Simulated assay, not measured.
Amino acid sequence: MTTKTDPAMQDLKPTVWIGKQGCTEATIEEIVAQLKKRNVIKVKWLQNTEVDPETVAEAARAVLVSVRGKTMVLAARGKKEKKEKK
């Protein structure tokens, strides 16, 4: 996880919102589908919802790029990373 703020990340609009029910299986499936299309996505969640960004990234098999407040940026894993994990 990087602590550096990339201006491109700030311009990125949230495409996945996690609501009152928390991070469900359907939410993870949506994150995976969007990562296939975009490679980098921003996920936001409600203030009263407890979300562990590292757990979400692991469940979606994504790279956790950054977390700021109630927002996280996820990136699709590259082919090299997938091979190393096997």
Rank of each mutant, 00 (worst) to 15 (best):
L35N: 01
G78A: 09
V40L: 07
Q21D: 12
I28G: 04
T15V: 14
K85E: 14
L74R: 02
T5A: 15
A62E: 08
C23H: 01
G78P: 02
A62G: 13
G78R: 10
N39I: 01
I31T: 03
I31R: 01
T15W: 02
E81G: 06
V63I: 14
Q34R: 15
V32I: 15
V16M: 07
N48Y: 08
P14T: 03
D11H: 10
K4W: 04
K37S: 05
V67C: 11
V40H: 03
K82M: 13
K36S: 13
M1K: 10
K42P: 03
G19M: 09
V67H: 06
V40Y: 03
K70R: 15
K44L: 04
D52F: 06
T15N: 09
E25W: 00
Q34M: 11
K79A: 10
A60K: 09
D52S: 03
A33V: 02
L64H: 06
V63Q: 14
D6H: 12
M72P: 05
W17N: 10
V43L: 03
T27I: 13
K42Q: 11
A8S: 04
G19K: 12
R68S: 15
V40T: 08
T2A: 14
K86N: 10
T27P: 00
A57R: 09
V40D: 05
A8Q: 07
E84H: 03
K85D: 12
E29H: 12
K20S: 13
K20H: 09
V40N: 04
K20R: 14
G22M: 02
V65W: 03
T3Q: 14
A57S: 14
A26R: 10
L64Q: 05
V32W: 01
T27Y: 00
C23W: 02
T15Y: 03
D52H: 06
A57N: 11
R38K: 08
V40Q: 07
Q21R: 10
V65K: 04
K42T: 09
A59T: 11
E25H: 07
T24Q: 08
K79R: 13
T49H: 00
K4N: 10
T2G: 12
K70E: 13
V51C: 00
Q47V: 12
K42W: 00
K37C: 04
W45F: 07
E84D: 08
Q34P: 04
V56D: 07
K13S: 12
T15R: 12
Q21W: 00
T49S: 07
A26L: 10
K20Y: 06
K36P: 01
L46A: 11
A8L: 03
K79H: 10
